[in-house]
Design a protein around this nucleic acid. Sequence first.
DNA 1: CGGTTATTTGAAATACGTCAATTCAAGTGG
DNA 2: CCACTTGAATTGACGTATTTCAAATAACCG
Lengths: 225, 225
Amino acid sequence: MAAALRRLSGLANLTQAEVDQILALGPLRRRWRAGSLLQTGGPQLVINGWACSQRVLRDGRRQIYDLVVAGEGIGWRSAEDAASRRSVVALTMVETVDLAGLLYEGQSGLRDAVLASLAEEDVRRFDHIVRLGRLTAYEKAAHFVLEMQHRLGAADARTFPLPLTQEVIADVLGLSIVHLNRVLRQFRTANLVEIRGGMATVGDARALAAAAILPVGRTGRDVSA
Amino acid sequence: MAAALRRLSGLANLTQAEVDQILALGPLRRRWRAGSLLQTGGPQLVINGWACSQRVLRDGRRQIYDLVVAGEGIGWRSAEDAASRRSVVALTMVETVDLAGLLYEGQSGLRDAVLASLAEEDVRRFDHIVRLGRLTAYEKAAHFVLEMQHRLGAADARTFPLPLTQEVIADVLGLSIVHLNRVLRQFRTANLVEIRGGMATVGDARALAAAAILPVGRTGRDVSA
DNA sequence: CGGTTATTTGAAATACGTCAATTCAAGTGG
DNA sequence: CCACTTGAATTGACGTATTTCAAATAACCG
């Protein structure tokens, strides 16, 4: 729950009352096992765990559209989900709470925060496209690590949680597991970053950012590529 | 103008009055030369020509996010444009009309049609992601041709306009020009489709669809990959 | 501990990119 | 109508990134 609150606070200013409101939702949570399909009959807030939105092709190839972390919403755009054949799958145990009531409520910092996270998601998708289309495997992996670090509010932290299998990361980046594994070994050898035991530990942050090519922590002010 | 009207009519039902309204916009058009950056100080409707939204990296690599054809809108989401470092560039001579007034007007079939095209764009972006991440060059090219055919309302036509250089198509698909050229030669040899002189001519439509892997003409009803 | 799943490594195949040159198509000016 | 230019399409030869296949650890979990 702490992670969810941190993510939400980074997206909009929440009053103490709103924080209490979220905490009060605790008893209503729904739990999903790792691997299960998150059937959202309406807008939900993830308060715990990791998930991903994805599409699977008939022959088994999978492309992950985006990850979902605590403090982010799912099920807010069911029409688009259906049209894009997008489904949301739990990667770890996941807890959500139903925010259907919030959708039409007059004023709500909580809703604003979730909507802000959805807007961030839209923007991130463009980075994702460039990453898939024009970056090398090495650049893709570096950019991904920085994107997650930034997203988790760990921009300055040397270490942050990243409880993802290499298979998941490979399916985000459009790479084979084996090749991703080799790239990560390069990172380890060069002391850029090490991912182990569900944790990422950044070594040479500057070199990592250089490898990522695309800027990650955007302020909306910078113009360069 | 005819192309724009056809595209719009495919997106929403337009009354005769609304068609007249669009035609009346004729005198207000702005013209852009091929290659120029479309500086949209507000929502515009493309009524003629082809453009693309793209991002260029410092080292010159380019990824095209999407094409823009007559009857589609640009400049409707300037915040997202800026955040994603997205710019719109004319690929041919382009004509647009300003629709700023329409944005806040009470009821307008024209605005509904443009908003529908923006929603289609959002959905298409997910196909784009899967295409970039998980399809082979051969599959990418086949899917792209079918997507354009569908989008131009030429689903049943053996031939339709596609005035794009191979460089542009390569930058859509995240391929090198040379490799795309070889794939297109394969298509020509196998009689799947031929692109020449700004026109695409489909030979074996069934084989082309099979090569594309991803379904294109979506009804919202089918579930399969 | 035992069984399962994830990671790691090697060797080989292949898809795709780069470099460089040639051909082709479409003006443009004489 | 014909050089001449320019940009696009095409092709060959070659290099490299990435995938595939297969097997060997290593980490996790009940």
